[in-house]
Design a protein around this nucleic acid. Structure first.
Length: 418
RNA sequence: GGGCAGGUGGCGGAGUAGUCAAUCGCACCAGACUGUAAAUCUGGCGGCCACUGGCCUUCGGGGGUGCGAAUCCCUCCCUGCCCA
């Protein structure tokens, strides 16, 4: 048992070392000042200990081991894309990149919600979530290059013994952990803080120490956790590390933000949906969107003055990054077709119905276009229902159902009877 | 262990016996307009009934008082805060 553990430890160290050597011999560090400038500024919220310090290191051509952690608590979304995009810039500069899949930390659940404790995930759910991560991440990072590795924190965290835990915990005080903004908010509203989530930053810090990283990259909301890593690194290894936080994708005016919703466009989202969802963004998000999500020059984006066109450009650019030029163009065409030209979508979901005649309300419920008859009635009275392009006004109407019939509810829901 | 405050629709949060299917905000849906599935404005937002009205089930669970309860009483469950 112990032998086995030793062996694994050895193997792990060997792999790390091997990886480092490989990178050392095959990759050169790029010190192009324009690229460095971009990496240091675009979408960057803050750099610890200072921008200056990091810039000096980068210009000196020092090879850095940089990591970001992603907890598989759900699907990857555009918010992850921002951080990964930043990582890509450093990858292109030739630094050594680690994407840490936080399979252990995901089971705790980083307490992001103001008021609620996140439901703990089972190991199974975590594995399920992480399933396609690598594939999605490969759309942003270059997996063909040898300076990118994927690691899992279960590997080392599960080996911690209670005595080790206590050792780690002893480097932090309750007051320090309590400083975290979301804990403060919870306290303010009288919410509870579970002990396990309280410990979250310690585990994340341990990741940084174990991998012996030089720099951590993460969203602005991860500042606290990453700084915990910086602290632990200093205490245990006496090493100064960099922390770079990226801006969050939010409306600069701060008003009327759909909260986290906006970031929640999944990277796996169907391209047409992705395009449409970006078009749904408020105008205030256009500039941040370009800065954070689009890998094209900001100047190019600023040339477009009409907000609608700018947003369309943004939507197309982002879809292109994940699905390629062709698909992006098709998504744009489809969007224009439905919402600019008011035509039917090229593809309409089909449904078979046994009945030949139905009251319009039953018809809507039967086809799942309305959740209840009351709702269906409301829709009809509000003129939200069209059959073969004709607005329906009479909720008592009996519909003769024919194949090929096209039902439309609102602007977006279409159904064809087959 | 002691003291206190609570549990209401997807969420937040009013209401403390009749006018409560329950103010309001968010989210959501529809309409108008436009530059789009944006912004703004308007309307809707438990369910059922061939419906300008009527019925049914909801306010943590169970029981009770009363003509009448989300609102009062009892009991159980759950949660938070404070003191030790």
């Amino acid at each position: 048992m112990i032998k086995n553990e030793h062996k694994q430890n050895f193997l792990r160290k060997f792999r790390l070392l091997y990886g480092k050597l490989l990178v050392f011999y095959t990759m050169k560090i790029n010190t192009d000042s324009k690229l460095i400038e971009e990496a240091l500024t675009r979408g960057v919220e803050k750099i610890y200990p200072s921008r200056q310090a990091l810039e000096t290191a980068l210009r000196a051509g020092k090879k850095l081991l940089i990591y970001t952690g992603i907890d598989p608590t759900g699907k990857l979304h555009l918010g992850h894309g921002v951080v990964l995009g930043k990582l890509r810039q450093f990858q292109d500069l030739g630094h050594e990149i680690v994407v840490l899949i936080g399979d252990f930390t995901a089971t705790i659940g980083d307490p992001t919600g103001k008021s609620e404790t996140r439901k703990p995930l089972t190991r199974r759910q975590v594995l399920e979530n992480a399933k396609n991560y690598k594939k999605q991440i490969s759309k942003i990072l270059d997996v063909k290059k040898s300076n990118l590795r994927f690691l899992h924190n279960e590997e080392w965290t599960n080996k911690l013994k209670p005595i080790d835990m206590l050792g780690l915990a002893s480097h932090f005080t309750v007051a320090q952990l309590l400083e975290r903004d979301m804990f403060q908010e919870r306290i303010k509203i009288g919410g509870d803080i579970r002990l396990h989530e309280f410990l979250y930053p310690i585990f994340q810090a341990y990741d940084a120490v174990t991998m012996d990283v030089d720099m951590q990259i993460g969203g602005n909301d991860q500042t606290f956790n990453m700084l915990a890593g910086r602290t632990l690194m200093k205490k245990l290894k006496g090493k100064e590390t960099f922390v770079l936080t990226t801006k969050l994708l939010t409306d600069p005016t701060g008003k009327k933000m759909g909260k986290t919703e906006l970031n929640m466009i999944n990277l796996e989202e169907n391209p047409k949906e992705m395009y449409g969802k970006i078009m749904k963004w408020p105008d205030g998000l256009i500039v941040p969107g370009f800065e954070l999500c689009a890998r094209i020059s900001i100047d190019e984006a600023k040339k477009i003055t009409n907000p609608r066109d700018a947003k369309a450009k943004l939507a197309k650019t982002i879809v292109k990054q994940y699905y390629g030029e062709e698909t992006a163009r098709a998504a744009e065409r489809e969007f224009n077709r439905i919402f600019k030209e008011n035509k039917l979508p090229t593809k309409i979901a089909e449904l078979k119905i046994e009945e030949r005649k139905l009251n319009i309300l039953d018809f809507l419920v039967k086809t799942n276009l309305a959740p209840s008859k009351s709702e269906a009635k409301r829709l009809v009275l509000q003129k939200g229902v069209k059959i073969n392009g004709v607005t329906q006004k009479d909720w008592k109407k009996i519909i003769e159902i024919k194949t090929g019939m096209i039902l439309q509810v609102g602007k977006r829901k279409f159904l064809k009877i087959s």
